[in-house]
């Protein structure tokens, strides 16, 4: 039940956020998509023991949070929901990689470094995706996909799936409630009801699909989807992409924290 509510909340939250009007929201969706992908590639290309080089990359999500006026608290809360997943994946590392290494006088297992690295990467990559969808609506994103020559059929299908997720989740939620009110002791759907519970929803779904098809047809649909046309790329879009790319590349090549750190220790000495 919590799952159902939670995902509905997720979709609504991001949908609402994506309608804001800030300089970030006004950027071309294609630029935001490409910047996100470039960011992800840079993060993902870091070695498995890399930590220091990852730190400057926190700059990107933070600035977007501020400039796009996003509620950091709410989004981070969403992030915490999925944290157990990555801890599950990464936690084996400290056990498997037991070579000790010394860091500033402390000795720890190398696996912890790997774990920390995965942990940071995971949070940064997931945040980047969430930031993309909180600043770009599904509609704009699909327009960007059309520019990238993703076929109409897929884009329309994607939009329909997105649209009907909330309708079906609501329907499911009502069914679940009706079920659990009459089966208070149960943890999930009993095996005797598996087929009919999901099946009924599915049948209704298929009937709905037919009506949706009729509604589309009555308004002249003939298998072609005409996407929203969006504004052309302008200089601020290019500048945004170039700016971030430059930063990412620099942060990747030059280890900024080490540089700052050695400057600092140098001064003390």
């Amino acid at each position: 039940m919590a799952d159902i509510k939670n995902s509905l909340y997720n979709i609504r939250l991001f949908d609402e956020l994506s309608l804001k009007k800030t300089p970030i929201h006004n950027l071309h969706p294609l630029i935001k998509l490409l910047t996100t992908i470039f960011y992800l590639v840079m993060i993902v290309s870091m070695g498995k023991h890399e930590i220091s080089r990852l730190i400057p990359f926190i700059f990107y999500p933070m600035l977007i949070f501020v400039l796009a006026e996003l509620p950091a608290y709410q989004i981070i809360k969403r992030l915490l929901f999925i944290e157990p997943l990555i801890i599950g994946v990464g936690i084996l590392n400290p056990l498997l990689e037991q070579q000790l290494i010394a860091i500033g006088g402390f000795e720890i297992s190398k696996g912890w470094i790997t774990f920390l690295s995965i942990f940071i990467k995971y949070n940064l990559t997931v945040t980047a995706c969430i930031l993309l969808i909180s600043t770009t609506s599904m509609l704009q994103l699909s327009a960007a996909l059309r520019i990238l020559r993703v076929p109409r059929v897929f884009v329309l299908q994607l939009l329909l799936t997105y649209r009907y997720i909330s309708v079906l989740i609501e329907e499911l939620f009502r069914m679940y409630r009706a079920y659990s009110l009459r089966a208070p002791q149960q943890k999930g759907i009993h095996k005797n009801a598996w087929g009919s519970f999901a099946g009924h929803l599915l049948l209704r779904t298929i009937e709905r699909a037919q009506r949706v098809y009729q509604a589309m047809n009555l308004r002249g649909f003939s298998g072609e989807y005409h996407a929203k046309s969006i504004k052309k790329l302008n200089s601020s879009d290019y500048l945004y992409f170039a700016g971030w790319s430059l930063f990412f590349v620099i942060a990747k090549i030059i280890n900024i924290p080490i540089l700052i750190g050695s400057l600092f220790t140098g001064v003390i000495k």
């Binding site: 059929v153 329309l156 299908q157 994607l158 939009l159 329909l160 799936t161 997105y162 649209r163 009907y164 997720i165 309708v167 079906l168 929803l201 599915l202 779904t205 298929i206 709905r208 699909a209 037919q210 949706v212 098809y213 589309m216 298998g223």
Partner: peptide, 11 residues
Amino acid sequence: KIPLMGVVGAF
């Protein structure tokens, strides 16, 4: 099939 794909996907 297009709306069917979309709606069943959502299902």
